[in-house]
Simulated assay, not measured.
Amino acid sequence: MRVALLIAVTLALALAALAIGRSWLAPQAVLAALADPEGTGRMIWGLRMPRLLVGLIAGAGLGLSGLVFQTLLRNPLASPDIIGITQSAAFGAVCAMMTGGAVMAGAWIGALAGTVVIGWLAWDRRSGISARAAVLQGLGLAILCSAATEALILRASDGNAGMAMTWLTGTLNGIGWPQVQQALWLLPLALPLLLSGRTLDRLELPDDLARALGVRVPQARIGLAALAALLTGGVVALTGPLGFVALAAGPLSRRLARGRPSPVLAALIGASFVTLADILARAISPAALLPTGLYTALIGAPILLIVLAAEFRRNRY
Rank of each mutant, 00 (worst) to 15 (best):
V3T: 15
A4T: 14
L11T: 11
I20A: 11
R22G: 15
P27N: 13
Q28F: 11
Q28E: 14
A33L: 05
E38R: 14
G39W: 01
G41A: 13
M43D: 10
I44W: 07
W45K: 03
R48V: 02
R48F: 04
L56D: 02
I57C: 11
I57S: 05
G59F: 01
L62R: 06
L64Q: 06
S65P: 09
Q70V: 09
S88K: 06
C95M: 14
M97T: 00
G100R: 09
A102N: 15
M104G: 04
T115C: 14
V116H: 03
A122C: 06
A122D: 04
W123Y: 13
R132T: 12
V135L: 09
L139V: 12
L141A: 07
I143N: 07
C145W: 00
A161R: 04
M163C: 01
T166K: 10
T166C: 01
I175V: 15
W177N: 13
L189T: 07
L191I: 15
P192A: 11
L195G: 13
P206W: 09
A210L: 12
P218G: 10
A229S: 11
L231W: 06
V236M: 01
L238E: 00
T239F: 02
F244K: 08
V245W: 01
P251Q: 04
L252G: 11
R254N: 08
R258V: 07
P261T: 08
L265Y: 04
A267C: 03
I269M: 10
A281D: 08
R282M: 11
S285V: 02
P291V: 12
I299C: 13
G300C: 12
L305M: 15
L308G: 09
A309E: 15
